[in-house]
Design a protein around this nucleic acid. Structure first.
Lengths: 333, 333
DNA sequence: TTGAAAGCGCTACCAC
DNA sequence: GTGGTAGCGCTTTCAA
């Protein structure tokens, strides 16, 4: 009961009540604009609150008013246009349900992601996003919170995960190139992991479906510069290449730029098809053809599954948690 | 005390305790990995929790463990690259302090913004962002929550607001154009409000500082297409124009595209300088010269001020809440 | 190792 | 119009 403590304790509603000489319910009424309160009393309370720098505890408030649900969205890098689009889509889908979304940008660092996960559990009701943490780790950290993963290369039994199915789209892309007369088609895969990506698998299978050998492949960092370097390397090793399919649009944009610098006209001398369907792709010159993912659908699906998990009601099965990508022709191919 | 209710009540720690035949403190210990608990007891509790689908209330938890602080970030449109950069910067600055950021994308709709504000107050400790709501409205809705506004055209006394000072940068830009021999310089202003923008004021003053009349102005929607249309209109009315300064980079990118379609080479036949300094600007062809804003600094400043407001300790004054924009020459001018 | 009791700060529901 | 009382669901002493 020591009322004269050093160090700043939190200012509570009782402090305001005491200072204004009223009870705390009166304070509550004043602050929440309920009626049933005298004008002068109200003003006195408001003044006292302001004076003391009082701010209600959202926890206490949330506790009594069974409040909105909020989900954590974990993203490797918001500045990467792809993740920007995914985030926007998820935000949109969540808003439609009146959910709050706490966004965590891990800056592509795994340790940062771990730290985020550690702290996230007490703040949100569910987690959605891109996680690179091993499953066991996630499981331990989340302690039962619903988790919806996006685009995990290896499927996981323990958590819901949304798969991206670009097989049809990539086949259509390669078919289009072949129909346009291309035979020497290369790929700019990502350089992230040691094994080739699944998109590379699709590429190979599409090539073989067209009766072509797996084309030449160059590895690219996931950046415009990475794309530039990779295309140059590819064309140095395989100068006869007349078309490339890339791991994603960012790399493709780098390829576009490299082609221009090398004096190769797109699509005349070199056709380029990316993957992702970024809006950004329509701004570059020439506008990028791409295997476009339905990001809005992705976000909606992730949120839908989260909702079901939250309600413990018939979650979607793995087969339903799929977003397709389709060929979207613009001008680069 | 009716234990057999219809409708799904929330599963509480007591339900788990009852089901596992222990007290709730024991449940708490099991769930939080505290020691001092028998292995078999712990397992039994965990099983019960899983079975019942129990998830702790973050409010109750936050109430007792004086938890992390979280701020609301209100953004008109996350897909607008400018806001993406601001959001990323704010997220980054917040993470450095261990804060949680709840992101709200209002989709550029004022009613949506109002709804957001209404619901936000009980979820966060402070609000940062772009608000179009009238001050009185914000004041009423926020009820004492710290608010930090970004780039409000009209300064406000009631809230902290971070101002963008592009005057020096715009002067440098116009000076650069004049030094390069340009005399007929136009501007593509935004079409949002009825009055010309502050950036237009800077343009006019920069022109006059160089001894030039206020150039011709065309209004553009804030989109690439808007920029295209506006440039075409401008060149139709004033074909002698050899350089344009634009309200922002998005519009400038549209201008670049329009110039290309009109057969005007950039920067040879037409010089273009944008405003904002988006990363995007370095991807287009030719890379865009621009009056670049320090978005990271913006985010950091907003968060810094929020922190001070939260601590009720010496908030920054209006003069300190300024972010400068400086000319960044790339190739379009 | 476990349990009982005491709050965290707030609002809802009833008296007055 | 105002105040008392009883919780919201959880963790943290302190006893057993």
């Amino acid at each position: 009961m020591a009322s004269s403590e050093t160090g700043s304790r939190r200012v509570t509603i009782d402090d305001v009540a005491r200072s204004a000489g009223v009870s705390r319910q009166t304070v509550s009424r004043a602050l929440n604009d309920k009626g049933e309160i005298g004008v002068s009393t109200k003003q006195r309370v408001l003044d006292a609150a302001l004076e003391l720098g009082y701010r209600p505890s959202r926890f206490a408030r949330g506790l009594v008013r069974q409040d909105a649900i909020s989900v954590g969205l974990v993203i490797p890098d918001l500045l990467n246009p792809f993740f920007t689009e995914v985030a926007a889509a998820a935000l949109d889908a969540a808003r439609a349900r009146g959910w709050h979304v706490v966004v965590y940008d891990t800056g592509d660092r795994v340790e940062e992601e771990r730290g985020t996960l550690e702290v996230i559990a007490s703040q949100v009701d569910a987690v959605v996003g891109y996680l690179r943490q091993p499953e066991d780790e996630v499981d331990k950290l989340m302690r039962g919170l619903p988790v919806v993963l996006i685009d995990r290369e290896r499927r996981t039994e323990r958590f819901s995960s949304i798969r991206i199915d670009g097989e049809g789209g990539v086949h259509a892309a390669i078919r289009h190139l072949v129909d346009s007369g291309h035979r020497r088609i290369g790929m700019l895969d990502h350089a992230g992991r040691s094994e080739p990506s699944i998109r590379h698998d699709w590429f190979v299978s599409a090539m073989s479906a067209c009766g072509l050998d797996a084309g030449s492949v160059s590895r690219a960092d996931q950046s415009v510069e990475g794309g530039e370097r990779a295309l140059k390397a590819l064309l140095t090793d395989h100068p006869a290449t007349t078309a490339v399919f890339t791991f994603n649009d960012i790399i493709a944009i780098g390829a576009l730029r490299a082609a221009r610098r090398l004096g190769r006209r797109v699509p005349r001398d070199l056709a380029v098809i990316g993957f992702d369907g970024l809006r950004l792709g329509s701004l570059v010159e020439p506008p990028l053809s791409t295997v476009a993912l339905d990001t809005r659908g992705l976000g909606a699906l992730a949120v839908e599954q989260t909702a079901r998990l939250l309600a413990t009601s018939s979650p979607l099965s793995g087969d339903e948690l799929v977003v397709r990508a389709e060929l979207r022709l613009r001008e680069s191919a």
